[in-house]
Write a protein that binds this DNA or RNA. Structure first.
Lengths: 341, 341
DNA sequence: AAGAGCATCTAAACCGGTTTAAAGCCGAGC
DNA sequence: GCTCGGCTTTAAACCGGTTTAGATGCTCTT
């Protein structure tokens, strides 16, 4: 823990000027090869690593990306998406010497989070997750001049590239799977309609049914939490003509719904088929195993980080990236109506 | 998005020197009150906020704290601890203008994470989570000269303050609860013995039974994941004399175990009582609701951040902080042996 | 009236890099 | 022999703050 060497130490040792060291390190042309070798050797011997702080100041970059998440349990909490997404992001950042700065903000005040990250100039760009319809954060970020990448495509104009993963094929596959099993009274527990991914899932639900000439038995709006899943399920089961199958917009609501159905004396899947979305860890292990839809949040994070870095690096017209759609995972929670399958 | 004002702009506007502005901002003595007012007014009019980067460089501080987590699903994934913990940490940092830097590293190479944070001088201190017995990270951090706070108390010597939350009373309460319900054949599914909190829970389990003159029916080692919970549960149920109650070291394993028991044709709690640890979101909503133990990870994060900041601020001999122990939450997954309760 | 003492403020160095303008050196060309 | 131009290299400015040494001006002693 003696003081770390500075660029001046390296310069002195190599017998050159600070500027030359900087040039050598950054691979700038204009230095003779022997000089470069000499400098790099000296740097190596001293174990010198350029100071991020000094670099930050002189090149006006933070060498960090930011993620703002709300404290809202509907978004954060035990959502399986974020941990894996973050891991994917990190896998890219660590190779580039960048850091990930996390901002957790109170419900509804996400704007403050971006404001802080921008004002403090902590990051060079941010991930825009849990995109909403007419998301005000887009204009905010434009105003703040903070580069961004959106997770999913916003409905309005956006100057930022989008990394998208189409939820609709997965949801459609769930519905078709249920149709094949003979279900016709199918209900949906959606997420809050403010979220783009929530409505993508619910419209896919409705449209797939429509393509088969059917109408949804009911669409209840949940809030992606387990508690919301319970509530919505109870309402559905209390209908005069209850559904024989329920498609949930995420696993948390589905697992909670499974519990509610069992608590109401129903047997899943004999009396009621249940499907989720996310393929969270527990989906495989509850009883019965939950039929669900699996995406790849790690890759989502990876791709989002790469894309964001392209715009941070000054590239213009960075194209959107479309990830392979989520796919159906069939387990025991869905079965032919009224019997073992 | 015009360029942000610098301290020189403020100085010019207030008709003073840069130094004076710095003094005024930091509340240093030696400036006449009217001058201070004048400076602050000028800063306000310009909307000036001192640059973190410049400050970082000159005072040699990062104004950020770091958290390293492994990509290992046993630690991360849908663990309900981290999201809430992080939210608690943030609640402290945001008031001090600090940022939280996250490092996600591959399994087993946590050391690299701290190394990187230290070498890049990204943070002023780190949280040491998922403490292990004889945790090598402590010596590493000492060597790196990076301040830290440990979550739970390490067994060896440690120069860092510890924020602790005693898991033993909670686990003990679970066992006593089961004893009161008449159980005597009680098994435990522990976490990996390398973790301090895993062994704390299992020794509390064993000791509480011992105090009642009983021995554990069996102690299986899980890995805190749902898959591990399933495995351990199957082994226990396959015993010639299977347990009538199982105490799991966390909710994920418990919920998975619940599924395994149901899949094996058992009715919980009639045939088997099950208890978890964490009170994760789903615990309340699975069927039957999971008896578990509730801690307060948000407060844990808050306290850890405050404590770490004290050492970062240069305070010596920062005392350990003991949080109120986790408490028992009784739900329907535990019942009197062989009957409705 | 001069020096001491104090409160107030400023100039300049400093943190550790990057970048620009210019200087030094070399052989080629006339 | 001298100038020119290209290749290397350096000195110094710069990023935007903090901090220290010292300048300034004022009152108070004596």
């Amino acid at each position: 823990m003696t003081k770390r060497p500075t660029i001046a130490d390296v310069a002195r040792r190599a017998g050159v000027s600070k500027g030359s060291v900087s040039f050598a390190l950054n691979g700038r042309p204009g230095l003779a090869q022997p000089t470069v070798d000499k400098i790099l050797a000296a740097a190596d011997e001293l174990g010198w690593r350029p100071s991020n702080r000094a670099r930050s100041l002189s090149v006006s970059k933070a060498f960090a990306l930011g993620l703002v998440i709300t404290r809202d349990p509907a978004v954060l909490s035990s959502d399986p998406f974020f941990p894996a997404f973050i891991a994917g992001v990190e896998s890219v950042l660590s190779t580039r010497g960048q850091a990930l700065v996390l901002q957790v903000v109170a419900d509804g005040s996400e704007a403050d989070g971006y404001q802080r990250l921008a004002q403090d100039a902590r990051v060079d760009g941010v991930f825009l997750s849990d995109l909403r319809h007419d998301d005000p954060r887009i204009d905010l970020l434009v105003e703040l001049g903070l580069p961004a990448v959106t997770l999913n495509r916003p409905d309005g104009d956006s100057p930022f590239p989008a990394v998208t993963l189409d939820d609709r094929p997965g949801t459609g596959a769930v519905v078709e799977h249920l149709l094949e099993l003979g279900h016709t009274r199918i209900a949906h527990v959606a997420g809050p309609p403010a979220f783009v991914h929530a409505t993508a899932r619910s419209t896919a639900f409705v449209e797939t049914l429509a393509a088969a000439g059917l109408e949804p038995l009911a669409v209840e709006t949940g809030d992606f939490t387990a508690a919301g899943g319970i509530e919505a399920t109870r309402r559905l089961l209390a209908l005069p003509e209850p559904p024989t199958a329920i498609v949930y917009a995420n696993d948390r609501m589905a697992i909670a719904g499974l519990g509610a159905a069992q608590a109401a004396g129903l047997t899943v899947p004999d009396d009621l088929s249940i499907a989720g979305f996310d393929d969270s860890e527990l989906a495989e292990y509850v009883h019965p195993g939950l039929t669900t839809v699996r995406a790849d949040p790690f890759r989502f994070g990876e791709t989002a980080a790469q894309t964001l870095n392209r715009v941070v690096d000054g590239e213009t017209d960075v194209p959107d990236v479309e990830l392979p759609p989520a796919e159906l995972v069939v387990r025991r929670s869905t079965a032919r109506l009224g019997g073992t399958r």
